[in-house]
Design a protein around this nucleic acid. Structure first.
Lengths: 191, 210
DNA sequence: GCTTTAAAAAGTAAAAT
DNA sequence: ATTTTACTTTAAAAAGC
């Protein structure tokens, strides 16, 4: 059994796509978004930031959104509700309730022990390690689909998961592989 | 019927033209870097394999060729930095790095096959710095001890080798400046200084006052 | 493929002091 | 020479080039 007792995961960012089911006139939307940026030449959506909840929204004329920077699904729901209220204020009509899809969750975490990444890279199948270009080992988990960056400190970053449960499952699979190849015991000597 | 035939001819024409361009690009790079023939042949083999597996899609021929050269150097243990290659390739380093990791993943070039011993970099940099065998041995001892002490994981191999050579040059009385060592290793002086500080501190090395 | 957005890890680079 | 700021890697969506 894989010992996950020392493993920690902390949510750092959630990305969601949203459909408001309404057409938007971006020029009018600009008025209700204080700190926003809109340059259709470089990007087709309005870039808008909320302080509470602290998120960034990309607003498109199709009525679809991308919400990023959230630390919880509730943050996203609150941000969408907040935007919907503002839009109602300028007369936008919605055909139905907004649909929110969590697309990506990013976690930072800790496995609780240090690693010799050269050993990991030489032993763990299907991983990448190019210290000249990036200090961490890149490990791709097929199911659930996620990518884990493993650093020598034992700290990790897990991205691509669509739920917290998936992220934990992906990390569990990495640990199972590390154990399978004897990379979890070799009590790295001294210090 | 004739149309299909012509389109096939056109396709193979384009494929041939692309291959010819890729191989001329490869020739230009290997000639300028004075790389041995077997490296050029290996790079060409990797490139054909990449084309066969359709790995070029969405990537420029230049970046893939440069990536193949770098991969061939790593496979054949001919130490060369990615910077040296990106200097003459007309693609930015970041793009070459991406193509390199992509073909490595898809051609089963594992970290093990691509691993180049720090010793090989020590000799390459020492050659360019005109350092003696004694300094090289000393640098390698420092690197081995650093590895045992877990001071190398995640760090730039070039930066570590540069710092080890800098320290060894001081210890053996053949001093080279941080600037000179940084230049051949293609890292900044700040990186050499950071690695130098950590190695001297954690390995308890007493360097002569300069 | 690219463009834009957010966030962490740890390392290196570039720029500022 | 040291500090600050910025960029490298991972993931994913949006509309359009």
């Amino acid at each position: 059994m894989v010992d996950m007792s020392k493993v920690k995961l902390r949510i750092e960012n959630i990305v969601a796509s949203v459909d408001l089911f309404a057409q938007l006139d971006l020029e009018k939307v600009l008025d209700i978004c204080p700190n926003s940026k809109y340059n259709p030449e470089e990007f087709p959506g309005i870039i808008c930031r909320f302080d509470d909840p602290k998120v960034a929204l990309l607003i498109f004329s199709s009525g679809k959104l991308v919400v990023t920077g959230a630390k919880s699904v509730q943050d996203i729901e609150r941000a969408v509700a907040k935007l919907v209220q503002k839009l109602k204020g300028i007369g936008v009509k919605f055909k139905r309730a907004p649909q929110i899809d969590i697309q990506n969750m990013v976690f930072s975490g800790d496995i609780g022990r240090e690693f010799n990444l050269d050993n990991v890279a030489l032993t763990l199948p299907n991983c990448e390690y190019e210290p000249e270009q990036f200090p961490g080992v890149i490990y791709r988990v097929k199911e659930p689909r996620a990518v884990i960056l493993l650093f020598s400190s034992g700290k990790i970053v897990c991205s691509g998961a669509k739920s917290e449960a998936d992220a934990w499952e992906a990390v569990r699979k990495l640990l199972r592989e590390l154990e399978k190849y004897g990379l979890m015991e070799e009590e790295e000597e001294e210090l | 019927r004739l149309r299909k035939w012509q389109s096939r001819l056109r396709v193979s024409d384009a494929a041939e033209r692309n291959l010819a361009f890729a191989l001329s690009e490869l020739d230009r790079i290997t000639a300028q870097l004075k790389l041995p023939k077997h490296v050029e042949e290996e790079a060409a083999r990797l490139y054909r394999e990449a084309v066969r597996k359709g790995l070029i899609r969405g990537r420029s021929i230049e970046s893939v060729i440069a990536a193949c050269v770098y991969a061939a150097c790593r496979l054949l243990k001919v130490p060369r930095t990615l910077d040296e290659i990106s200097d003459i390739a007309r693609v930015e380093k970041k793009e070459i790095g991406r193509s390199y990791r992509f073909i490595a993943r898809n051609l089963n070039l594992t970290p093990k096959k691509l691993f180049v011993k720090p010793t090989d970099y020590v000799n390459k940099f020492a050659d360019e710095l005109g350092l003696s065998e004694k300094v090289r041995r000393r640098a390698i001892e420092i690197l081995e001890e650093a590895y045992r002490r877990g001071l190398t994981s995640g760090k730039s191999p070039a930066g570590l080798v540069a710092a080890a050579l800098y320290i060894a040059s001081l210890l053996e009385g053949e001093k080279r400046t941080q600037r000179e060592v940084a230049e051949v290793a293609r890292v900044t002086e700040v990186t050499v200084r950071n690695r130098y500080k950590e190695l001297v501190e954690k390995l308890g090395i007493k360097v002569p006052i300069t």
